[in-house]
Design a protein around this nucleic acid. Sequence first.
DNA 1: TCGTTTTAGAATGTATTCAAAATAGTCGAC
DNA 2: GTCGACTATTTTGAATACATTCTAAAACGA
Lengths: 244, 244
Amino acid sequence: MKKKLSLSAASPRAKAEHGTSLLTAFREIRELIVHGRLSPGTWILEAELAERLNMSRTPVRGAIHWLQREGYILEHRNVKKSRMIVAPLTKEDANELYIIIGRLEGIAGRGVAVLPVAERKELCAQLQELNDRLQVISKDRDAPPGEIFENDRSFHRLIIKYGAGARMTTLHKAIEPQTERYWRLYASSIIKDLYLSVAEHDEVIRGILAGDPDRVETGLQVNWLKGSERLGHVIEIFGERGSW
Amino acid sequence: MKKKLSLSAASPRAKAEHGTSLLTAFREIRELIVHGRLSPGTWILEAELAERLNMSRTPVRGAIHWLQREGYILEHRNVKKSRMIVAPLTKEDANELYIIIGRLEGIAGRGVAVLPVAERKELCAQLQELNDRLQVISKDRDAPPGEIFENDRSFHRLIIKYGAGARMTTLHKAIEPQTERYWRLYASSIIKDLYLSVAEHDEVIRGILAGDPDRVETGLQVNWLKGSERLGHVIEIFGERGSW
DNA sequence: TCGTTTTAGAATGTATTCAAAATAGTCGAC
DNA sequence: GTCGACTATTTTGAATACATTCTAAAACGA
């Protein structure tokens, strides 16, 4: 069915630079998953991906384990062998994911709330600018979904950058990107609720300016919780993807 | 310096069972790190570990990446190559770690607080039993530290088991074990404050029985926060390990 | 025709080999 | 004597080769 010989004959193996294959594989495969090119629930074949990415199984294998640890891939393990599948997208998982991120960012939120006033003002200026942009976009029916997502993401990443320590930053970088899968699948429907998120962001900014850790933490938790609820409605309507 | 030939000559390579090397490597190396056999800050050499564990570099390599993702190993990366070092133990890191776990367990705490009464009672009976045992141990000067740690751990893991979803459970399993490094290093000094933790656990149990999510979440957060503070004092006194 | 057993193929796990890059050490020039 | 460049060794990254196990299909028997 699949011509085995094509590999040695057709692909000269471009050899990117050396030392970049693992990272490349990780990014590429994650991209495939996020964009739905690898459907939720799909079985993952190392050899197939290796051929697709034009590299050997070794870095692909590493990337798969990495993606597994970050939640993009699940392990269906028998006694010794393990089959990997693309993690399904479910309402429960989305809810859990959003709650977790809300709590984590809440911690960073406490961090920024106790920064010196000067830094807080500087940060809030940037946050405000991002949120203003979101406000504008929210009134534009034809706004590109990608820009909205990146904008919202920047808002939250700024808070991490200013308020989180090394460990939190690492953890956040591992978990937060997973929201993109849900976002992309249900993007069009989420947009119309965008103004709600803008208001929640405003509350966070005010909390930071007031230097109130509890208010900031709560504000961020609420933002993600409400987001989870909005997303949940959409998933219920459209049905879950990845239970196939 | 290091005899290269010894590998093929001396080690018959026991070959555990096949398909178990990666997991074995992960566990063994983590054990080495947790028990301080690999000191914080030490450079990690794949070949050395492979020889030590009597396997090839391949599973060792996988295990190292895994441990890196879980925070036991850090990457000291130049442009392209990456040197791995055992993660140092610092006051700041401990604080961050404990706060994070507190927030995560808090979520699970909300979960158990809304379980049906029957399950809550069943759970609380088990929790109470564990905490009673801790209470007894806390009055025993010569109590084995290992038992205390395992007992405390069981308490928290029970809450996760009953109140957390799949994603939370995975995340908790990845993060919580890292507390053991701090615990082991400063165990003797922490024990004398154990009665405080027992009281905090009691508050959690009462919150669960009352079916009050906020109370349970706060209780767990406080337990970890106070633990972080207690640990911080000890670290300050003894000095940080791993800045060598 | 259905069930069981055996065998062939496919996919994962591990070892080994090969390549590239960084670091350390040495030699030479100023 | 010191600084810099070049070389050699060490170590990581990737590819390929090999072993094992799981799956599934086919054949044989009831």
